[in-house]
Design a protein around this nucleic acid. Structure first.
Length: 127
DNA sequence: AGTTTGACTAATG
DNA sequence: GCATTAGCCAAAC
């Protein structure tokens, strides 16, 4: 399957520069409900791109935030906010706190409590 | 065309 | 828990 191959011979001359993988990733992020977070790695996995966590970050960086994508609900595997240098994590933190998400003293969220696991799962995660 | 970089992560020590 | 390493891959040098 060609996930990075962009088809030139498509009916629409426009919008041919967006790889399928990016659309998949954005699609997953859009499903993160309010008050929950998801990790880069898990998003990649749900998008059918296991191991491509960095691609998720890249997509978010290049994607205009005007896409209705709840970018602020994406944190790293440690529950910390990962932001590009230059940007303050305060904004993302505020947005999450506004949804009822609490941060601990290490500025981390409790993934045990807030991680969105996409429908089913319901795996036993400690207590 | 080779190297570096990055909104990442799991595995080690 | 922190530092290092290795995998990852597309864009930027």
């Amino acid at each position: 399957m060609n996930r990075t191959k962009r088809i030139k011979s498509i009916e629409s001359p426009e919008m041919t520069g967006v790889p399928d993988s990016h659309m998949q990733i954005l699609s997953i992020i859009r499903q993160i409900p309010r008050g929950k977070v998801c990790t880069y790695g898990r998003i990649a996995m749900l998008a059918g791109l296991p191991g491509r966590a960095r691609l998720v970050g890249k997509v978010l960086r290049y994607s205009p935030l005007a896409n209705g994508v709840p970018w602020h609900r994406v944190v790293n595997a440690s529950g910390c906010i990962s932001l590009r240098s230059g940007e303050s994590p305060v904004r993302q933190k505020s947005l999450l706190e506004g949804e009822g998400i609490r941060f601990n003293l290490a500025h981390r969220v409790d993934l045990n409590q807030y991680l969105w696991e996409s429908r089913h799962a319901s795996k036993r995660r400690g207590k």
